[in-house]
Design a protein around this nucleic acid. Sequence first.
DNA 1: AGCCAGGCTACCG
DNA 2: CGGTAGCATGGC
Length: 197
Amino acid sequence: MNPLLALYHRLLDQHGHQGWWPLKGNYHPKDYSFPHNDLEKFEIGIGAILTQNTTWKNVEKSLLALGSCLSPSKILDLSDAQLQDKIHSSGYYIQKTKKLKNWANFFIKINHCTPTREELLSIWGVGPETADSILLYAYQIPIFVVDTYTKRLLIKENLISSNANYAQVQAYCESQLPRQYELFQEFHALIVENNKS
DNA sequence: AGCCAGGCTACCG
DNA sequence: CGGTAGCATGGC
């Protein structure tokens, strides 16, 4: 077993199955069938944008405040001021209001199709980690999500060099792991959980 | 009191 | 191009 796969199993033993992506506040350990519909896919994108450089705790408050507005058309029906108010706790609320509406417009435009990475990256407000999180958790595409924790951990474990960029870290991880979306989902969640404790 | 959160964009040299 | 200030709240 290679060092990265060994690290995955160590984290899994230590923290158990994480059941990401949380939907309506619910985790679903060992059930990799989610999302079950378009609305859940949309909600994953909302959460991925709101959690940019922000704790999930603050995002949960926003998602609760959004409540029944978690659909593309309802997000677009809100005025900027109304939406800003609902997502206030997530920080950067002016920018994130624009980002959420961009995601809603995009989601309507793709009309139930699976977006490509390039399409997602073309949205103002969606960068590499957000795009890859959407592809991995909303569309079950085995693409490795790299965040600051991932990089920090892999540097500490001497698996990558400290000046590696996003694409290089991602390519390394994908080359060392079986290409299974279930494993990729679990691994990223475990890395985040590992950094909380 | 500061530093950090499940980043991204714009702008700088 | 690679590097970085600005965005903003809440928790510790």
